[in-house]
Nucleic acid binder design. Structure first.
Ligand SMILES: [Mn+2]
Ligand SMILES: [Mn+2]
Ligand SMILES: [Zn+2]
Ligand SMILES: [Zn+2]
Lengths: 145, 145
DNA sequence: CGATCGAATGATAACAATTATCATTTAAAG
DNA sequence: CTTTAAATGATAATTGTTATCATTCGATCG
């Protein structure tokens, strides 16, 4: 029994072809940050496809199961990303203002700050989200040439 | 001549009552993070009010002038905040998962990290946005009692 | 001042993203 | 297999935002 099916069973959700298909697409394209519409279009290329309402419903479910999370990259649309098995914590993003490329960023860098926030603000931090804006490695190299 | 009028003049925008009213509301409510709709409703209580289209247009303009910025607090709606004169840099947010309260957070804490990101990822950081999730001081005290 | 003129506004239509509805289909359990 | 509640898909409804366009208004200049 697959890991996904187990997680669904735990909460008495059913494993459907559509749910698996959405998860598969997100896994396959884990480097991109797909919007609901992009996911829907990618699924249409497969046999049958999945209704747009089901895409949205499945994304809500996957988010509730903490298998994915949504991110806002300031381009005005909601995007989704899968949580890979390999990452212990939520990852963050390096956003290039030149080419628009978004690179994932495994942190742990901020963990020491959480203590500092507690001391300074009395706020107990459990989680954080960071976006860094700047110029990516590729664009920096182009500038040099 | 007001500071706002100057900034508008610089780019040959006109100072209108509506633009001033939107800016005033954002200044008055600078601790909250108002949505376009909330701003519109607050303005309706004043004489005349401001059309919703103008509210959106003004928010776009104020953002372009870097007098405000939009934030996403994961409640599915776009919110706006004014940049106070007193803050040198963009501020960040402490979001309480218990009571939903959002506290502003003046950082500089992350500045040392930007160098580290460059060394580790070759990405030159110019700006960053952080959200810390956790339990606020008030909710922590309640828990203790 | 008052005339002039392009910019700004408001009402509302259009659009895009998301959610709700409901008849039909299907996964899972017995 | 049957049964049954859950899930799906087509599509209507809703919501947030932008576009359109006739009307109004702020700033400039005599
Ligand atoms: Mn990512
Ligand atoms: Mn703020
Ligand atoms: Zn780049
Ligand atoms: Zn709280």
């Amino acid at each position: 029994m697959t890991d996904f099916k187990e997680k669904l069973n735990d909460q008495s959700y059913k494993l459907t072809g559509q749910r698996q298909a959405v998860l598969d697409i997100l896994t396959l394209h884990h480097e991109e940050h797909l919007s609901a519409d992009q996911i829907h279009k990618l699924l249409e290329e497969q046999k049958g496809g999945v209704g747009i309402a089901t895409v949205y419903r499945t994304l809500q479910l996957l988010e509730k199961l903490k298998l994915i999370s949504r991110i806002y990259l300031d381009d005005g649309c909601t995007r989704y990303q899968i949580h890979l098995e390999t990452e212990k914590h939520e990852h963050h993003h390096l956003i290039c203002n030149r080419c628009g490329h978004v690179e994932d960023f495994q942190d742990d860098l901020l963990d020491p700050l959480e203590q500092q926030v507690f001391e300074q603000y009395g706020f107990r931090v459990f989680d954080h989200r960071v976006k860094f804006y700047g110029i990516c490695r590729t664009c920096l190299n182009v500038q040099v040439n």
